[in-house]
Design a protein around this nucleic acid. Structure first.
Length: 488
DNA sequence: TCGAGAGTTGGAATC
DNA sequence: CGATTCCAACTCTCG
């Protein structure tokens, strides 16, 4: 009886979240049949985690059979450009980690290669599926996908459920609160959030018990056919860098390491971090947030706890919570703005007659501009897949309004290929910002490609490392004593 | 409606 | 060396 009441509470709570996120009459009809146990496919696209995963939780609580599924559709990652090998490695590691964590709960991850529509059509019938669940996303490609799945559900007779957990808020609420438009300044954005109150708290933990009541049929798992691919299976070279390992387990470990430094966390001010330190001077959690190995809502809540215990703490825009809110800001504007990743047809973007210069673009991309500070950053980007935010500013300004006068779209594509944390909304938003195409308009404020880097690295150590003048091992040994400052 | 004020993170000169 | 002011002059928000 005791367990039964707890169950009911859990059920009510998941219904509450669900109801706040959906509005159509079809959804309300769905509510009435919600108590019938489903056979569910949960599609992972982002949200590659088990913690704070309300959609997966709702799937488990409404079903007696679940098939966790990752569809390896190359269009998933990006709709128009290449994904670099470092990104592929990070993604595959994240999927493998998810599979391992599901196995610990007596489930597994089915990885199926192919076009998502065909895969879904095949397996809905093969497995007698009555419900498909997927984490809510704002990108046009995923919205389109949701519409297609909904239509397919009407045809094949399954229900579709999608809850928000990739962002702090349901972005649709922010747009509504701002009168049906996107706020175009951070200040305005914060004002809207202050009217909405705190973000949604993380959802309840998923446990072994959930997978006892809702099982994954072991006989459906054919090892070879459904296993997580290795880089070689996709003709992707293995990452040389071992600094960034994908996966929820790694992400949570890194998160906990940072949260231990409560003083550093509460006093964090982004502009005071160093763009050219030899190891990241910021948290380095962005790759984990971008594929959803980590929940922004968990990070936000844990930061609130630390702030509450501290005598004083930094504030947005420069604080750590402020960084999460920048992410939210760009998601909000991107969700509302057509052609957000392009100049043409983008109503918030200044229309500029940029130069077309393949040679100069190629030199920038390949770290051959001749400016050591710029080239060092582009080398780190290519080799490691992560560069500091201000380093991104420096090379973005150089490519666009600062020096080469080449379109921000070209730079955005290069970042999309090489950055482990590449993200539709944030990448395009920041490129518009840096090129003074939107959000930021002081086009005369130029980052000097020589002096800006000199300020925080007068001896040029960062440049020497990037140029291969000494090995990372030597650097680590040399700078070991500084580890508390450089936040490994 | 229109003008003042403000804008995450530039740089140089000056005190 | 740090804080302050000016540079030059865009766009969004708000009253």
């Amino acid at each position: 009886m005791h367990i039964h009441i707890a169950e009911l509470k859990g059920f009510a709570s998941s219904l509450h979240v669900w109801r706040t996120c959906t509005h159509s009459t079809e959804d309300l009809q769905e509510l009435t049949t919600f108590t019938m146990p489903h056979r569910t496919i949960h599609i992972f696209r982002k949200g590659l985690r088990l913690h704070d995963n309300p959609t997966l939780l709702a799937a488990l609580e409404s079903s007696d059979v679940i098939f966790p599924l990752y569809i390896l559709d190359k269009n998933f990652i990006t709709s128009n450009t290449n994904v670099g090998s470092n990104r592929w490695n990070f993604l595959l590691q994240s999927i493998e980690d998810l599979h391992c964590n599901l196995q610990k709960l007596n489930s597994c991850l089915f990885v199926i290669k192919g076009d998502y529509k065909q895969v879904l059509r095949d397996y809905v019938q093969k497995w007698n599926i009555t419900q498909v669940t997927v984490d809510h996303e704002i990108e046009p490609y995923y919205r389109d996908m949701d519409e297609n799945i909904t239509a397919m559900g009407q045809e094949l007779g399954f229900q579709f459920l999608s809850l928000v957990s990739h962002t702090l808020y349901d972005i649709r609420r922010i747009i509504t609160e701002n009168g049906g438009r996107a706020p175009l300044t951070y200040k305005r954005f914060l004002h809207i959030l202050s009217r909405l109150g705190d973000p949604e708290p993380p959802s309840r933990e998923i446990t072994e018990e959930h997978f006892m009541k809702c099982t994954t049929p072991a006989d459906a798992f054919v090892t070879e056919e459904h296993r997580v691919p290795l880089p070689e299976d996709l003709d992707v070279p293995r990452s040389k860098s071992t600094n960034w390992i994908g996966g929820e387990s790694q992400g949570l470990r890194r998160l906990e390491q940072h949260l231990e430094k409560q003083g550093w966390v509460s006093q964090f001010k982004k502009p005071q971090t160093i763009p050219n330190s030899l190891l990241p001077s910021t948290t380095g959690l962005s790759p984990y947030f971008s594929v959803g190995c980590l929940s922004v809502r968990v990070f936000f809540q844990k930061l609130s706890t630390i702030y509450a215990q501290a005598k004083n703490h930094s504030l947005p825009p420069v604080s750590l919570q402020g960084q999460l809110l920048w992410r939210e800001f760009f998601y909000t504007v991107a969700s509302y703005t057509p052609n957000f990743t392009k100049m043409a047809g983008n109503p918030i973007c200044l229309q500029i007659d940029w130069y077309k210069d393949e040679d100069k673009l190629n030199k920038w991309t390949k770290a051959q501009t001749g400016f050591p500070w710029i080239d060092a950053i582009m080398t780190q980007l290519r080799e490691e897949g992560w560069i500091h935010h201000l380093a991104r500013h420096a090379v973005a300004c150089f490519l666009t309004r600062g020096d080469l006068w080449i379109s921000w779209e070209e730079g955005m594509k290069v970042f999309e290929e090489l950055l482990l944390d590449a993200d539709y909304s944030i990448n395009a938003g920041n490129w518009m910002w840096l090129s003074a195409s939107a959000f930021f308009h002081h086009y005369t404020r130029i980052f000097c490609p020589v002096r800006f880097g000199k300020r925080t690295d007068p001896d040029g150590n960062y440049i020497r490392v990037s140029n291969g003048d000494f090995s990372p091992q030597k650097i680590l040994a040399r700078f070991k004593g500084l580890s508390c400052e450089i936040h490994l």
